[in-house]
Amino acid sequence: MSLAARHLEDNGISTVIMGCAKDIVEHCGVPRFLFSDFPLGNSAGRPFDVGSQAETLELGLQLLERAPAARTTMQSPLRWSADASWKLDYLDLAKLTPEKVAERRKEFDVVKAVAKTKREAS
């Protein structure tokens, strides 16, 4: 998505990315980025919370209008929960036994094979 934003911007279309993976988007380098510190999958706001979704979009629109230069990141003030311990869980190796690691590896091999078949067919 970051690459797409850069390409559109290079061709005169102003862009804003709304996303939850701050390091990945900033590592690439994009014109405008509204970062929500939410679990991946909630780039546009909280589930069933129209107010949070509207606020998230509004911040993105303000970036479109007012970002002074490239690489402008704004962090949404919204919090996913008062307790931040959810941030510890994503791909947490410490929670995996060696057996579980082997299992995940097998699963990932299957996923890759499925994706390869699908990609080659498309």
Partner: peptide
């Protein structure tokens, strides 16, 4: 004919 784009990765 768009002037701007909102990109939302999931």
């Amino acid at each position: 004919g768009v002037d701007a784009a909102v990109l939302v990765p999931s």
